[in-house]
């Protein structure tokens, strides 16, 4: 594998302008900046309605330097297919097509189109930034909201159901590359997107992007919160390349070591305030079992 990118070798050119419209401390805005550097200028973006639509600016001012097609909520992956097809018939196949969608646009309303495009084997990178709720419409629960989280549609007891395991669903499509990343480790995300660019067919990258207003923490703690999710073993960094799973980066370093208790992560955010001690213990057991599987 090529050498890991460092802050010194990261390309200096900025493709996201300062003054974009995301909130202060937005995890997505960190990874969008690094992600577009990795994708490079020869890229066409596809974006469904989400916080990213707002980040990119209001007509006629745009915050990004790359061409972008804003599409309807459910149609992101199919739109990527359409762009690829047009580039092919026009003989312009050296352009990367990358979709960026929220967790709702990916795992809920957009899953049909995404599944279809992956089954067809279309050559694109699909990046899901997971802020674990419908943030753009005011923090409603989504399929990837973790169990117990207070949202505006689970306002009292917290979400009863488990978080949908979207990367596993994508891996089940037997696509060549599935990876996860976190806003707390942007260089790792940079390298994974770079790698995805070199692989033919559908690529899926799932990014954990802390969201201060939606999760209930102070804007300066985005990286800390993101790190804790990894260090507690709740959100794991990995790659599934041609079907082979391996932990990467900070998660790989946790193998065989003692992890921080999940409660340490929950304490940092008000959205977990409805979690009972019993529920926290149950979640801790689940995480321990998952890691026992990794370590076996």
């Amino acid at each position: 594998m090529s050498a890991k990118t460092t802050i010194l070798t990261l390309p200096e050119e900025e493709l996201v302008h300062p003054g974009h419209r995301a909130c202060a401390g937005c995890g997505l805005s960190i990874l969008y900046r690094f992600g577009l550097k990795a994708l490079g200028r020869d890229t066409i973006l596809v974006v469904p309605p989400s916080c990213l639509t707002v980040l990119q600016g209001l007509y006629p001012i745009a915050a990004t330097q790359l061409p972008c097609l804003n599409v309807t909520f459910a149609s992101t992956a199919a739109a990527a297919t359409g762009i690829i097809a047009a580039l092919k018939v026009r003989g312009k196949e050296d352009i990367t097509v990358a979709a960026w969608a929220g967790d709702g646009g990916t795992s809920d309303i957009g899953i049909q189109a995404l599944s279809g495009a992956c089954e067809r084997g279309d050559n694109f990178i699909f990046i899901c930034y997971d802020n674990e709720a419908y943030m753009n419409t005011g923090v409603q629960r989504s399929g990837t909201t973790p169990q117990g989280v207070i949202t505006t549609t689970t306002p009292i007891h917290g979400k009863p159901q488990q978080k949908k395991d979207m990367p596993a669903i994508m891996a089940a499509h037997t696509i060549s590359y599935v990876a996860t990343g976190s806003a707390a480790y942007p260089l790792d995300v940079y390298d994974k997107i770079k790698k995805a660019k070199t692989i033919e067919g559908p690529k899926y990258i799932h990014l954990h992007t802390p969201c201060p207003p939606g999760w209930g923490f102070d804007t300066r703690y985005t990286v800390k919160v993101g790190r804790l999710a990894v260090e507690t073993g709740l959100f794991d960094l990995y790659e599934i390349e041609h079907g082979v799973f391996r932990l990467t980066g900070a998660s790989k370093k946790l193998l065989g070591k003692e992890r921080k208790p999940v409660a340490a992560y929950f304490e940092t955010q008000t959205r977990f305030r409805a979690l009972t001690r019993a529920r926290i213990s149950a979640i801790q057991r689940q995480v321990d079992e998952k890691w026992a599987g990794y370590e076996a």
């Binding site: 066409i44 596809v46 097609l69 599409v71 309807t72 459910a74 149609s75 992956a77 199919a78 739109a79 990527a80 297919t81 359409g82 762009i83 097809a85 047009a86 580039l87 092919k88 018939v89 026009r90 049909q112 189109a113 599944s115 279809g116 089954e119 067809r120």
Partner: peptide, 25 residues
């Protein structure tokens, strides 16, 4: 000389056309 995309729904059929048309086809 065309790309025929066997989509998984009509919503996606028009999505493909919308995006391909936006990309000049």
């Amino acid at each position: 000389q065309a790309e025929y995309i066997p989509v998984e729904s009509e919503h996606s059929a028009l999505a493909v056309c919308i995006a391909a048309s936006s990309a000049g086809a």
